[in-house]
Amino acid sequence: MREPLFLIGNVNVDLVMGPQEPWPQPGTEVIVPESEFRVGGAAGNTALALDVLGVDYRLIASRGDDMLGRWLAEPFGARAEAWTVAEGATTVSVGIGHPDGERTFFTTTGHLHSFKLSDVLSQLEEAGDGRVALLVGPFVIPALLADYDELIAILRRRGYRVALDTGWPDGGWTAQVRTRVAAWVGHCQHVLVNDIEARGMTGADTVEAAAAIIRPLMPDGASLVIKCGPDGALAWRGNEHVAVPAPKVDVVDTIGAGDTFSAGYFASLVESSDLARAVTNGVTVASLAVSTRPRRYR
């Protein structure tokens, strides 16, 4: 995969604060020791890591028509020039940290709710030529989600190799959502999900059982990667199975860990098709990211 990676999905503003425990009473004010204002969203997190890792990519996204939207685009320079500018405010996600490293999020609707298929196509090259199109954050982009089946079909017709990181659906893994995602998976050369998502999308009790359900849905030669947080990651491709443990680190911030894993995974595939190497690089990059502040990727 030496051609640019096309990254399609959600970029928004993150305000991360905390840690805080217990949850405060309504009407009170709480002073927290730390805050950070940064680029976020699954596509944003992945893109920032790809930048540092030196991977050539195209970022297909949008922003709001406001001060935060201009700030959001600034780190991406020329890559953000083609972004759709939505009327109104930029989406903001406020993450309240807890002492165990977990977060509670409050997210506004904002520009992500108007990002649609025509916006993607206006930024997408006609000829895919076998390049990877990584789709992330579908369930937080409702207008695009409505046409996700068509988006995947268009990518396939144009010659892109589709990669998918589902995220967690609003409303959970209903029977309807499972059926729809299963149809997407049938067109993907790479599926990257975390262990909870894998069990949710299949109803399986274990990661291995979930993989046994997902893999037959995928094309021949496709790769399934299940990210298991502090336990590392598992992957399958054909008859190949890879299990990579994560190093023990002092966790500082878990936001976007799975997104940075994806960046490390695809950064490795730029140089080699070695699945074990790609998964190992994903685990290494994510482990460094969650254990450093300011965040580091290499």
Rank of each mutant, 00 (worst) to 15 (best):
V13K: 11
W23K: 15
R199G: 02
C228E: 12
L145W: 09
V120C: 03
Y57D: 12
F6V: 09
F106I: 10
R38I: 12
G110Q: 04
E3Q: 13
R131E: 07
V193W: 07
W23H: 10
P245C: 05
P19R: 02
T292D: 02
A78E: 12
R79D: 05
A257C: 10
E197F: 00
R156Q: 08
A182K: 13
S291F: 13
G88H: 14
D165G: 14
P142S: 09
P247F: 11
G137I: 04
G200V: 12
S93V: 14
D149K: 08
G186C: 03
R277K: 15
P230R: 10
G172V: 04
V13F: 14
G200M: 07
V132C: 04
A182S: 15
V16Y: 09
N194Y: 00
W168V: 03
A204V: 02
A143W: 00
N194W: 00
R237P: 00
R293N: 14
A257K: 02
S114E: 01
G221C: 14
A278P: 01
G40M: 03
P4C: 06
P216S: 11
I196P: 00
V270K: 13
N239M: 11
V132M: 02
R180Q: 13
G282V: 05
V279R: 05
D165M: 10
W23L: 15
I60C: 01
G159P: 09
E197K: 00
V136Q: 08
V30I: 10
T84V: 05
V39Y: 15
D66G: 09
Q189I: 08
I226P: 05
F37N: 08
G128L: 06
E126M: 11
G54V: 06
V132G: 01
T179E: 06
V285H: 06
A210Y: 01
L275M: 07
G101V: 15
V185H: 08
V177R: 10
L7E: 02
H111L: 02
T284I: 13
D231V: 08
W168F: 06
N281T: 12
T108G: 15
G77T: 04
R296F: 01
D231S: 11
I152R: 11
D147N: 07
L134A: 09
F261Q: 05
G171L: 15
A163Y: 04
L112E: 01
A153F: 14
E36T: 08
F139G: 11
L269A: 04
T104E: 11
A257Y: 02
